[in-house]
Simulated assay, not measured.
Amino acid sequence: MKLVLIGAPAAGKGTQAARLVEHYGIAHISTGDMLREEVAKGTELGNQAKSIMAAGGLVSDELIIAIVQERIKKDDCAKGFILDGFPRTVVQAEKLEDMVKLDHVVYISAPDEVMLERLTARESCPKCGATYNKLFLPAKVAGVCDKCGEALTQRKDDTVEAGKARIATFHEQSEPLVDFYKKKGILFEVDGTQAIDEITKAIIAGLDK
């Protein structure tokens, strides 16, 4: 099964992708995570992406497409994968069509004010990568990772200012993907304001039809 998850920042794509990966036994490909890894390593790609990401912008199509093209060739993608954070534009979606045939596209939708509130409440573990949200998925002990005990941190692009810029970028560049995939007949929409478990159930029900 080859899937794409679409949604504004903080729609819950990463949370749902992790659950779907476990349910279906397929690979999770997060372009955001891959880019942040490059930034942390200080690679040439990471240095190019660093300032753009901090301002809430999008890195170039060429860079992202090159990363994805190499990633989907790896062995763990043989049974399928979930793309989280790619494609972000119709141009990228057209390029992806040249690489692979998708089975489904899931659009997790929610109002802007919900997204912004969630964005500024997000925390993550720098050691094991676990993610939390102070509003609806808090750590058991405030500021401490449940899994490994490391102190939680907040991403630099999870400020109100950067959050507004990222949401505006989604509407301008990524929202056209909804119509693009609707016309292909492979998109279905899920209400992202529901409880996390309900969103998961809705997605799995849609995929298993």
Rank of each mutant, 00 (worst) to 15 (best):
M1K: 03
K2E: 03
V4T: 14
A10P: 04
G12Q: 12
A17T: 05
R19W: 09
H23F: 08
L35N: 12
E38Y: 11
V39G: 15
L45C: 13
Q48E: 14
M53T: 05
A55E: 15
V59R: 03
D61G: 09
I65C: 10
Q69R: 10
E70Y: 01
G80N: 09
P87Y: 03
T89V: 02
V91G: 04
Q92M: 07
Q92H: 04
E94P: 06
K95H: 12
V100M: 12
K101Y: 06
L102R: 07
L102C: 10
L102T: 09
V105W: 15
V105Y: 15
I108F: 11
D112F: 05
E117S: 07
E123I: 04
G129S: 14
A130K: 09
L135C: 05
C145V: 06
D146N: 13
E150L: 00
L152P: 13
L152S: 03
K156H: 01
K156Q: 11
D158A: 00
A162P: 09
R166C: 01
I167R: 06
F170K: 09
S174Y: 02
P176Q: 03
L177S: 01
K182S: 13
I186L: 14
F188C: 11
Q194Y: 10
K201M: 04
A202T: 08
A205K: 13
K209N: 14
